[in-house]
């Protein structure tokens, strides 16, 4: 009986003492935080993708609460809806942004870009890029080792086995930009999603002159300027031997796609053309 009593007394005493210590410490080191931070954080997607440029969703929430206006603060993963929610909580106005999506600007699949060497080091694009231009003759193209896949927190990009190129899952991609910074070749770009997800872009970033570019890759942009002439809206410029379509100016007329001799310009999510049969590359990307 004594033993039980002693044990009970000791344990209860211990419990009380510890509780007091905990209480005192909790009071003394209490961090006063704006409850709005929690509210704002609840609005965010909570993926901690870093797309806003701040350390995690909590960091973003803190920055939002601290800031006078929401200018320059934008959650790409959440998009306009989340920003509107946050703005409502804070009583501010959020800037509206056109929804964006990551596009991979390389079309050099295995069959179009011949391998000239065998790469045998750590399987990382960044490691490979410090070593050489790539295992094909094109030193600008995708290395296909999947650094973009690794950094994607939304599981929205994967390497297609057949072509060896990364493919963006349109439903999952939030345009957080993690893959854009991860890509050592600067191939991935965030572009406006466009109406009904329709997009046209030059799927090539090489800076070689036409002849060597064509030699290295069948679907390289050879800077022939045909698309520039075909474009009725002056949306296309050729710089450093590579065409670029400004997505702000592009009206999705698809004229450039028709004239491109190498198929370097891709169109996504368009209905099939009336005259011609849908070309195969487009449907491959769609899948």
């Amino acid at each position: 009986m004594d033993i039980i009593l002693n044990t009970l007394i000791t344990l209860s005493a211990l419990g009380v003492v510890l509780a007091v210590i905990l209480f005192v410490v909790a009071q003394k080191f209490k961090v006063i935080e704006d409850p709005k931070i929690d509210e704002v954080e609840a609005c965010t997607p909570g993926a901690n993708c870093g797309g806003c440029g701040l350390p995690g969703c909590r960091g973003f929430a803190e920055a939002c609460v601290k800031a006078e206006t929401l200018e320059g603060l934008y959650c790409p993963a959440g998009g306009n809806e989340v920003m509107k929610e946050i703005a409502d909580v804070l009583g501010l106005t959020a800037e509206e942004k056109e929804p964006q999506i990551a596009v991979v600007r390389c079309n050099g699949s295995h069959d179009k870009r011949r391998k000239t060497t065998t790469y045998d080091s750590a399987l990382s694009c960044a490691v490979s890029a410090t070593l050489f231009g790539g295992d094909t003759d094109c030193q600008y193209g995708c290395l296909g080792l999947g650094d973009c896949v690794e950094v994607c927190t939304f599981d929205a990009i994967y390497i297609d086995e057949e072509s060896g190129l990364p493919i963006v899952d349109e439903d999952k991609c939030t345009a957080c930009g993690a893959c854009v910074t991860a890509c050592p070749k600067d191939i991935i770009e965030l572009r406006n999603k466009g109406k009904k997800s329709r997009r046209i872009y030059v799927s090539c970033v090489n800076h070689d002159k036409g002849a060597p570019a064509k030699r290295a890759c069948d679907s390289a942009c050879i800077a022939c300027n045909k698309c520039v002439k075909a474009c009725p809206f002056d949306a296309i410029v050729v710089e450093n031997f590579c065409a670029y379509i400004d997505y702000e100016k592009c009206k999705l007329c698809r004229k450039c796609v028709e004239v491109c001799p190498t198929g370097a310009i891709l169109e996504l999510n368009f209905p099939p053309r009336k005259v011609k049969v849908e070309n195969t590359e487009t449907s491959e990307i769609e899948n």
């Binding site: 080091s121 750590a122 960044a126 490691v127």
Partner: peptide, 13 residues
């Protein structure tokens, strides 16, 4: 293990 591959990368970064 390709130790140096990654160390080089880390150094560069």
């Amino acid at each position: 293990i390709p130790l140096l591959d990654y160390i080089r990368l880390g150094k560069a970064n």
